[in-house]
Amino acid sequence: MSEDMRPSWTQRIQEIGVSLPAVAAPVAAYVPAIRTGSLVYTSGQVPIVDGALAATGKVGGDVSPEEAKQHARTCALNALAAVDALVGLDSVVRIVKVVGFVASADGFTGQPAVINGASELFGEIFGEAGQHARSAVGVSELPLGAPVEVEIIVEVD
């Protein structure tokens, strides 16, 4: 789709009633997002809200799968904020790949449903351009004790 034919993603976000947060400050030696060619890679984003981690714990234990799905949505918004700060949200051509990590209690196998919180948000905002390849991985621990972390690869013009 040509740039002049593509909808305004900034306008679409407003239409669905969400807003991008401020870019979360890195907690170690990295940048929130980097561009190479026509791709933007974000660093892993945890559910930071207003500068603080929204939850800690393991999914299927301290954190319910439903709560974790909402946290994955927050992670996705944080990732989009990093993209927006680097290149502008309206330069997004498509979401290429989503990688989600879920801090999982023993025996928890619902990682794909948790990461749907991010995937469904990308569909709401970008429609067909939000369809992406994806990995949903269960891990024993995440930075700061976060229950979920999401990183994305985005094609931009």
Rank of each mutant, 00 (worst) to 15 (best):
R94A: 13
V148A: 09
V83C: 05
V154Q: 03
L89T: 08
P112L: 09
V102N: 03
K58F: 00
V150R: 05
S104Y: 02
A25H: 09
L89P: 05
G110V: 02
D50A: 14
E149V: 10
L142I: 10
S8L: 11
A146T: 02
A82W: 03
G57T: 05
A33L: 07
V102C: 07
A29K: 12
R134D: 11
S135Q: 15
V40K: 01
E15G: 00
V23M: 05
V148G: 04
V49P: 00
M5L: 15
A79G: 12
A146D: 01
S140H: 08
V150P: 06
L20F: 07
S64Q: 03
V148H: 04
V139I: 14
D157K: 09
A113S: 14
P47R: 05
A52I: 04
R35I: 03
V98N: 06
Y41E: 14
L86K: 12
G44M: 12
Y30N: 11
Y41L: 09
I152C: 04
L144S: 11
H71C: 04
A22D: 11
Q131D: 13
A76K: 07
G60Q: 02
Y30L: 13
A68L: 06
N116I: 00
D50Y: 00
A68Q: 05
C75F: 04
E67P: 00
D90G: 09
V99W: 04
D157Q: 09
R6H: 09
S43Q: 11
L144K: 10
Y41Q: 12
T36W: 01
S135A: 15
A133H: 09
I34H: 03
D4C: 12
A24P: 00
K58C: 07
I48L: 03
A105L: 04
E15H: 00
I34S: 11
E15L: 05
A33V: 06
A105K: 10
Q111Y: 01
V31M: 05
V40F: 02
P32C: 08
S38I: 00
A129Q: 11
N78E: 10
Y30I: 08
Q14F: 03
S119T: 15
R73Y: 00
T42W: 01
S64C: 01
E124F: 07
E124D: 15
A103L: 06
V92D: 03
D157G: 14
A68H: 02
Q11E: 15
A55K: 06
E67A: 10
D4T: 14
E66M: 11
E151Y: 02
V23E: 03
